[in-house]
Every structure is written in structure tokens, then in C-alpha cells.
Design a protein around this nucleic acid. Structure first.
Lengths: 178, 178
DNA sequence: GGCTCCTCCTTGAACTTTAAACAAATGGTC
DNA sequence: GACCATTTGTTTAAAGTTCAAGGAGGAGCC
């Protein structure tokens, strides 16, 4: 419903709502393709990783962030920000990954409130074993189908979108912007 | 983890796994921007609709599909396919929307197994009242930030991605492709 | 009719995510 | 030091999603 009958504009002078800026037909098509593609892709990758690695895509992404971090560890808040998820969600996720033995928590010496999420060797192994299959899935679904120019555009476009939704300040919780 | 140390290639003649086609640096940047943008956008719209319409984005999408359908009604399977979700998920979702009074089920006369999901007047009203705010959110997050050319590219690109992941045959359940 | 296979949709359990509330530690200010 | 606001991370419950299983109707075939 990106477009609908417009409400009669108030004849007064101080109307606030204004006429909604409905999407044009072209914009609607773009939006629907986008939502459709994202939905299908997300489900596809979730299924692929659930099957081959025993975890959803987001959890896999957490292990990746940890694997790339200095001592394969990150503070909870930092990991949450990198992965663009709330701290609450991260708490649950790490709890689950800990149960799998792929991550363990460690106290932060500097800040007694702090916790590090640390990638275990088992976690690293899971990543090493499942990464090839995952890249292949990403390639087949996305990169193999796009021209180099399209790949470049996609990157630029999504970077712009992401920037626009970035949290105002680091450290803030996710309900960033209102 | 779109890239990682490669396993030593087997020297035999019949190795299947092959060297994984890791992502190049550029591809990785594209992929990360994409995932980041999608995550932030999805969360943003979910929050916006949860706040203003009392339902997640997917549910809102279901009401939209119903509103556009001939007699504001669709068979469950068809709605599931249009929305790109499983029938199971749809069953739960419609149950919830029914509790809200925004949708109601109706038996299909032709096929006793069949059910129609029908948008109620209340459901339509919710849509009419919340659509302006939602379009505005979509505009601010996406269209206002992109040039017409970028909008066009985004549409083409995501249409290609979506097509590649489309279910083989209509009527099949979602675990389409394997 | 009886049989088999498929389709339509639902269900319940397990799992994940969200939202709100909270304890503990920190940091600045007086 | 005492105070108060902020930050960190967790917890609880409710909501949503997934997965596997299943009841019931339809469709083709004998």
C-alpha cells in the first residue's frame, strides 16, 4: 500500500499532514522488486546456513565479525554495533552460540560491567568448514547474476541507504533515531 | 567470512570441492554494504510500522496484497506466494490479524480445503490511516537519497536477484529449490 | 467404490526476536 | 565521599518464525 486514495486536503491554512508523497508506478515497481529480492535472498541464505552450519545467517555473521577481530574477541556492545543488532538480541544469540561451544564469554579486566565474546577454536573450525558453501551460495544468488557495473551500483546504493539509517552516536542502543 | 584460508587442493584427479570462489575485496565491500543496508532498513521499517500500525512489516504487506486483490480476498496459498512466505507462516500471521479484526477467513465454495483471507473494513481503515506514514518512511530512507538512475538500477538488480531465487513451480511450498 | 498420490491449510513445539525492566559499574559533579 | 545520570549487559515475557507432522479434500486410475 504505497499508494492510496488521498484524504481531502484541509482548506484551513495550518494543515500539517500534507498530501502524502505516494510512490509513482516506477517507484512502486522498484520497491516491490527490492522487497521481493531481499525476502527471497534472506530466506535462501538462512536456509542454506541452517542446513550446512546449524545456525541462522545473523549468527554466522557474528562468528565472522569475531573471526576478524584482533584476538578473535569483541566487547558485546561493539559486536552489536558492527552486526547492527540490539544488545538484547546479541545476548540471546551469544548464549546460544556459547551452548554450541563456538563462542565463550570472558570478563573485561578494565570494565567490570563488560564482557568479551570470544570465538573458540571449534567456532573457527565451523566457520572454515562452512565458509566455502556460503560464499558459493552468495555468488550464485547475487554476484554471478550481475555485471561488474551492477555490482558496483548495488554497493553504492546500499551504502547510501545504510548511511542514512546509521545510529546518530555510537554507544546508543538500536532504537536509534526515535 | 566470505573469504578464508583455502584448504590445500587435493593432488588427485577427481577432487570435487574445488577451490572456493572467494569474494574479492570489492565484492566483499558490496556485500557488506548490502547486508548492512538491508538490516538497518528492515529494522527501521519494522519499528515504524510496529509503532504506527501495531504490526510488523510483513503483516502490513499482507494487508496490502489483500487490499489490491479483486474482492479484497485471496486464497491462502496465493497470498503466501505473493508475499513470498511459507503457508505455515501465513497461517500464524492471518490468525493474528484475524484476532485484530483486520482480516477474516472465509471458506472457499469450490474447494472445501480452501480458505480465503478477506480484508475487513477495519483492516482497510488501518491501511488507509497508516499508509501515508509508511510511504514517507520508505521515501526518506530510500528514494529521497537516490538519483533516478540509481532507483532504476536498484530495481533492475533486485529483480534479477529475485528471479534467480523464484520457486520452480507455483503451488510448491517455500523450501523451493531443495 | 476403493486406492493412491497430491494439494490445502493448520497445528504444536522449538527456536529467535522484540520490548521493557533491571542490577551493577562507571563517570562526572558537587 | 555522596549523588545522579549514563553505560553495560542480562533477563523476562510476549510475539513471531521455522520445522516437521498431520487431517481433510481433491484428482486420477483401477
Amino acid at each position: 500500500m504505497e499508494r492510496m486514495k488521498a484524504p481531502a486536503s484541509t482548506s484551513g491554512t495550518a494543515q500539517a499532514p500534507q498530501e502524502p508523497r505516494w510512490l509513482t508506478d516506477e517507484e512502486q515497481h522498484v520497491w516491490r522488486s527490492f522487497m521481493e529480492g531481499v525476502t527471497l535472498l534472506d530466506d535462501h541464505l538462512d536456509r542454506q546456513l541452517q542446513r550446512d552450519a546449524g545456525m541462522p545467517h545473523v549468527y554466522y555473521g557474528l562468528l565472522v565479525k569475531l573471526a576478524e577481530a584482533p584476538r578473535r574477541r569483541l566487547r558485546m556492545t561493539e559486536l552489536a554495533m558492527l552486526a547492527k543488532i540490539t544488545r538484547s538480541r546479541l545476548s540471546h544469540a551469544i548464549a546460544r552460540l556459547e551452548k554450541n561451544g563456538w563462542v565463550h564469554r570472558e570478563d573485561c579486566p578494565d570494565d567490570k560491567r563488560g564482557q568479551f565474546a570470544v570465538l573458540t577454536d571449534e567456532g573457527y573450525d565451523v566457520l572454515r568448514q562452512t565458509a566455502p558453501g556460503h560464499v558459493e551460495a552468495v555468488r550464485q544468488a547475487v554476484f554471478d547474476r550481475l555485471t561488474p557495473q551492477q555490482q558496483k551500483s548495488l554497493g553504492e546504493i546500499m551504502r547510501i541507504v545504510a548511511e542514512g539509517l546509521q545510529p546518530a552516536e555510537a554507544g546508543a542502543d538500536l532504537p536509534w533515531l526515535r
